[in-house]
Write a protein that binds this DNA or RNA. Structure first.
Length: 421
DNA sequence: TCTGGGGTCCTAGGACCC
DNA sequence: TCTGGGGTCCTAGGACCC
């Protein structure tokens, strides 16, 4: 048996935690650059604000004082997420952290618990009491059904936040009244095709012939169908797999029209990506970058391009990655466009303690390089932006806008001035 | 005027091997 | 006239997730 625990309107709930006067108020949290809505309190949903709409489309509510708005504060959400996960780990033996706001629980070792619904309520109470974040709990025989149970727990208030689909008859009833688009793994494209063949509800999908559907769609959809029938196809993974790709990309605060700030941005993203790489204890042997104009603009010249450089020998050295990224930029940058976004991607990742070196090229992981990076990271862990490379830019006025950022309630950096003192 | 960031998995097709 | 069978590896692109 699995449970899925999912925090309600997670980012919005985090913000409200420190602003109790906003309880029962419409609250939204915006994406980076204050671009789109990425989290909505129930009251904001009631205003008709849809997920992922551009902020300018709902700005009116804000200006009329009907809507409280926050820029995303990932340091805060990450910190509260860790507290939620730790609390779950104290309650059940197996926890798979699935995203910042949800976790699958393995309940097989919980045979002594008389009633799983009771366990669900215990989880809700504990997390609410200890952390103050509301959660919902879905329980079922497969992950896909647990997701669906969780959806029901949030959707139907009479469940009080807990749905156990293993109860006789519950699964059939829920599948019948749930739109197929709510099923985990069934996205927009697939929904369109399914409707064309008269599959509208989760029950319709569960009834479809799995073999035929694999041929017509994919093995992924076949697995979803089996999971809806209670046959587990997706395993439980307590230890997250090591990352296969690391990406750092940002939309600029305003469009960039010349090379110099683009170079600063690429350097900055390369350094950030290299930092993440070292955090993961991995090396990269492939550096890619991409740049693009606004794909949504109707009356603008569009340009998007990317480039990749495979390294002969793997590295985690910010300097090497930065230099390569910059050279790649020279190759694809074209004058005359209004650039909106750029990114640096590291691929072909290998563990740092067991990597494939090159027979004919010098090993880039020299003691000197490793030591320097270690020192760089140690300084920057204690002092925010304590050490950076000259070319990253000091002012960075292309960096994202966060006009509605909340304070660092639970995290703190020592500022650079401490170093100077 | 104004639209995020960071990932995973699967498939088809090309190039290549014996 | 007529040209096999069985594989692997890599990449780009699509679909999906939160």
């Amino acid at each position: 048996m699995y449970a899925l625990v999912d925090c309600n309107s997670f980012y919005a709930s985090c913000e409200r935690l420190f602003r109790p006067e906003l309880k029962d108020k419409a609250v939204v949290v915006l994406s980076n650059n204050d671009g789109c809505v990425v989290a909505r309190s129930a009251e904001a949903k009631a205003l008709g604000i849809k997920m992922a709409v551009p902020f300018f489309e709902v700005r009116e509510f804000y200006e009329r004082g009907q809507l409280q708005v926050f820029s995303s504060n990932y340091a805060l959400y990450g910190d509260l997420s860790a507290r939620v996960m730790t609390t779950l780990e104290e309650l059940v033996p197996e926890v798979e952290v699935y995203s910042i706001d949800e976790a699958f629980l393995g309940l097989s070792g919980m045979r002594t618990e008389p009633d799983l619904t009771e366990l669900g309520h215990k989880i809700i109470k504990r997390i609410n009491h200890w952390i103050g974040i509301p959660v919902g709990v879905g329980i079922a025989e497969t992950k896909t059904l647990a997701k669906l149970a969780n959806y029901a727990a949030k959707h139907y208030p009479q469940t009080q936040g807990v749905v156990d689909l293993s109860k006789p008859g519950w699964r059939e009833r829920l599948l019948k009244k749930t739109d197929v688009s709510e099923v985990w793994g069934v996205g927009r494209r697939t929904v369109e095709k399914l409707r064309a063949e008269d599959i509208y509800t989760a029950a319709d999908l569960a009834r479809a012939d799995a073999e035929t559907m694999r041929r017509r769609y994919s093995v992924v959809l076949e697995r979803t169908i089996l999971e809806l029938r209670g046959i587990p196809c997706i395993g439980f993974d307590e230890q997250p797999n090591p990352k296969q790709q690391i990406l750092c990309s940002r939309t600029f605060s305003h469009r960039l029209t010349c090379l110099q700030p683009m170079q600063e941005a690429i350097r900055e993203y390369a350094v950030r990506a290299a930092e993440k790489l070292r955090e993961e204890k991995r090396l990269t042997s492939s550096v890619s970058i991409y740049i693009r104009t606004n794909p949504n603009a109707k009356f603008e010249m569009k340009y998007a391009n990317g480039a990749t450089y495979p390294l002969p020998s793997p590295t985690n050295d910010s300097r090497v990655i930065m230099k390569i990224a910059l050279r790649l930029l020279q190759g694809i940058y074209r004058d005359g466009y209004r650039y909106m976004k750029a990114g640096v991607i590291l691929n072909a990742l290998q563990p740092e303690d067991n990597y494939q070196a090159d027979l004919f090229n010098p090993d880039l992981c020299t003691t000197k390089s490793l030591q320097l990076m270690k020192t760089l990271d140690q300084v920057n862990q204690r002092f925010h932006r304590g050490l950076s490379f000259a070319g990253q830019g000091q002012k960075q006025d292309w960096a994202m806008q966060r006009q509605h950022l909340s304070p660092r309630y639970t995290t703190s950096w020592r500022e650079l001035k401490v170093v100077r003192a």
